[in-house]
Design a binder for these strands. Sequence first.
DNA 1: GCCAACGTTGGC
DNA 2: GCCAACGTTGGC
Length: 155
Amino acid sequence: MRYWLMKSEPGEFSIDNLEQRPQQTEPWDGVRNYQARNFMRDAMRVGDQAFFYHSNCKTPGIGGIMEVVREGYPDHTAFDPDSKHFDPKSNPEEPRWMMVDVKYVRHTERVISLAELKEHDELAGMKLLQKGNRLSVMPVSEHEWFYILGLEDHS
DNA sequence: GCCAACGTTGGC
DNA sequence: GCCAACGTTGGC
C-alpha cells in the first residue's frame, strides 16, 4: 500500500464536497501535469490512501483522508471543449491525461496546516515542502504518513 | 536543441 | 492582489 497527497482548491472541490458525493466517490479529473499524471497512471493502486490537501485558500493544509477505488483511466474532461480542462491535443484514441477515482474515508480531526507541517523537522523531506514545488499529486512516505496522523490530536 | 515569452500555481 | 517558481510553447 502506498500513500499520497492530492491538492484541490476548496473553492473548486473540497473534502466536504467529496463526503457529499454519491458513494462518496469522485474522479480526480483536471490534472494537467505530466509528473502528477504519471503517478496516477503508473503507481496508484486500489486501496492506496491519500491526504486531501486544500490549496490556495485561507489556511492551506490537510483536511481529510481518502482512498483510491479505481486505478488510472483516461480523463474524459480533456475531450470536452466545454470543460475548463479541455485539451485539444488529447483524444479518446490516444488520451493524454489520466485520473483515478477516490473515495472519502474521513475528515482529519482538524486541519493540519501547511504552517504546522513546516514546523516539524521529521517532515522536512516532504515533497510538499520543497521550494517551488507545484505538484498536485505526490507520494508521501509511510513514515511521513504516520507522523502526520500522529499530529492530529495535538493542537 | 536553445531559450525567451508566457501562463499557471499557490503561499502570503 | 502580488509575485516567485515552475512548466510549456514556439520561433529560430
